[in-house]
């Protein structure tokens, strides 16, 4: 108890190692939240860094240690929303051009397993709360209790939201697989 409290005080005074000891266990939480919201792992990784930088600068505003996971989660969400807004602004202008220039490298395409493509697409289509909770569960291997604390929802809600996410994901992956099969079949017969 004393050690962690000391770390917070040290971090407030600019001790980088102390700050790292505090936030390091929560990198998964940040990444999971970021990935859940942004869908893109690279963007989520960037956001992880951005969040940690922001947290390092504003650690002085953190009231108490138990608030840390919620604080980081909220900070990640806000930064992700900012990022999405920025992307949307740029996206509108670039949309047409992007459609013209989107090229998937052949090598990457071949190497990418079908299941991974399907999973990526299906997860991308899930509502944001589902993406976030799945990321928390599978990246961090959080328990119901830990997810409950991080998201500020009840245990019952964690259980039901997780299962609803799995259910919806299952139906989406099945639908995508069927569509792909149909497409492959069509290609062969034409």
């Amino acid at each position: 108890m004393n050690r962690t409290k000391d770390d917070l005080e040290l971090a407030r005074e600019g001790d980088r190692e102390a700050f790292w000891r505090l936030v390091s266990p929560h990198r998964g939480l940040i990444f999971a939240t970021a990935l859940g919201m942004l869908k893109d792992p690279e963007a989520a990784e960037d956001l992880l860094h951005e969040t940690l930088l922001t947290a390092a600068r504003s650690i002085g505003t953190l009231r108490d240690l138990p608030c840390l996971p919620g604080w980081l989660h909220t900070m990640t969400r806000n930064l992700a929303l900012d990022s999405i807004r920025r992307q949307q602004r740029g996206r509108r202008a670039m949309a047409a051009a992007a459609r013209q220039t989107q090229v998937i490298p052949v090598g990457e395409w071949v190497e990418k397993e079908a299941w991974l493509t399907t999973m990526e697409q299906a997860i991308g289509e899930l509502p944001e709360p589902f993406r976030v909770i799945l990321a928390l569960k599978y990246i961090n291997e959080y328990s119901y209790e830990q997810i409950s604390r991080a998201l500020g929802i009840t245990l019952g809600a964690v259980r039901s939201r997780l299962f609803e996410a799995r259910k919806l994901l299952k139906s989406k992956t099945e639908a995508l697989a069927q569509a792909r099969e149909a497409k492959d079949h069509g290609t062969r017969t034409v």
């Binding site: 971090a11 407030r12 005074e13 600019g14 980088r16 190692e17 700050f19 790292w20 390091s24 990198r27 998964g28 990444f31 999971a32 990935l35 792992p41 989520a44 990784e45 992880l48 860094h49 940690l52 930088l53 390092a56 600068r57 504003s58 650690i59 002085g60 505003t61 991974l116 990246i139």
Partner: peptide, 20 residues
């Protein structure tokens, strides 16, 4: 696969960050 690289990031890049 997605998380492998990200969560292994170290504190090096925080070198110049000072809390407000």
């Amino acid at each position: 696969l997605k998380a492998e690289r990200a969560v292994n990031t170290g504190p090096e890049w925080l070198a110049d960050v000072q809390p407000a």
